[in-house]
Amino acid sequence: EIIGAESLGVRGLCCFVETRERNILIDPGVALGYMRRKLLPHPVQIAAGEKAQKRIIEAWSESTDIVLSHFHGDHVPLADANPYQLDAGRLIGLNHEVRIWTRDPAHFSLVEQKRAEALAAILHVRLISAEGEEHGPMTFSGPVPHGQANNPAETVMMTRIEEDEVFVHASDIQLLDDETVSLIIHWKPDIVLAGGPPIYLSRLSEDQIKRAWHNAERLCHAVDRVILDHHLMRSREGLEWLKRLSSETGKSVMCAADFMNKSRLLLEADRERLYERMPVPHGWHEDYATGKTESRREARESNE
C-alpha cells in the first residue's frame, strides 16, 4: 500500500508492506511543499495531507517495524513540524513495541542528527542503526546518494523486503547515481518503488536528465514492475516522462496513483490552477495553522 506520494497529492514516498510475520511502514512522513510559486498549499492539497497523515498514524499503530530512509521532513514525523507536516507529538504513546530502523548516525547531516534525537526523545524510543544489515525479510543498503554522488552529507538507505516476491523501496535516489541503480538490479526485485528525477528544478542539467533517463531504462529492462514518483511528479512534465519511458521500454511504468488504482492528483504541480479555480480567502492559512475548526472543515470538504 502506497500511502503518500506526489501523484497522491502530497510530498513523500510512504508505503506499508505486510508479510506473513511483519507489518513494515517505510518513510512515515508527509509534506506539501511549503511554498511553490509564492503560494502556500491550497486547501485541497491540505485535505489530502490530512488524509495521508491519518492513514500513517493508523499504520504506525499496526506496524512491527518502521523504516526511516532519511530524516527529511517529507519522510519522517517531526518534533518541529510545520502545519502541513506530520507532528511527532501525534504519535506519542502509540505502539511502544515497534522497531524503528534508520541509517547509521555517523552518516546523518547535522539537521538529521537533531531531528533523530528529537524524535527519539519525544517518542521515548530507540532508533536502530540498520545500514548493511538484514533482519527477517528486510535487507538494508549502506548509504547511497540522495541524488548525485557528490555530497556525502546527503545519503539515504534503501530497503529490500523478500517473501513471495522481492520489493525494493528506493527513496530520493532520483536515478542520478549509476551504482545505486546497479545495486537495486543486483537485488533482483519484482517490484521497485523509487523516487524519480526532479525535472521540475531548473538547476537539473541536461547531463543529469540523460543519466536519470538511462538509469530508468536500466530499471525497466531488469524489473517487472517499476513505480516512479516523488520528485518526478512535482510537475506535469513528469507524467509525460513516464509515458515516454513506457513507450520506449515497452513496460507499463507506473506512478504511485496508478499502482493504487487511484486518480492522479498532482496537487502541488497544479497549485496555481487550484488557486485560480478555487480562490482562498485572505487569512485562511493563518486560521488553519492556529487550529480554527472552520478552516480544517473547509479543507476536508474541498477534498470531497
Rank of each mutant, 00 (worst) to 15 (best):
S171K: 12
R103L: 05
L127N: 09
S205D: 09
R36I: 04
S247I: 05
H72M: 06
E112A: 10
E272P: 08
R36Q: 07
F140W: 15
Y275T: 06
G9K: 11
V44G: 01
F167Q: 04
D207F: 11
D177Q: 03
W213Q: 12
K262R: 14
G291T: 11
A289I: 11
A149Q: 03
L40D: 01
M157Q: 12
L228C: 02
W101T: 08
R11Y: 06
L175A: 07
A118S: 14
A216F: 05
V223L: 02
K210R: 15
I199D: 04
R37G: 14
G73Q: 05
E294L: 01
Y275K: 07
L266H: 09
G250R: 06
W101P: 12
A118P: 15
S202V: 14
L32G: 15
D287M: 07
N82S: 15
H169E: 02
C14Q: 11
R36A: 04
H169L: 03
P43H: 01
G142V: 07
A52H: 15
G291S: 09
K54R: 10
G33P: 15
V223T: 10
H70Q: 13
R99M: 02
E117I: 00
W241Q: 07
E272V: 09
P279L: 00
E248L: 03
Q113A: 06
R218T: 02
E117D: 13
E21V: 14
R300H: 07
E294I: 00
D74S: 15
A256I: 10
I185G: 04
L110W: 09
R271G: 02
H169A: 00
R225L: 01
R37H: 15
A256F: 08
G136H: 12
W101Y: 15
P143Y: 06
V76G: 06
V156P: 06
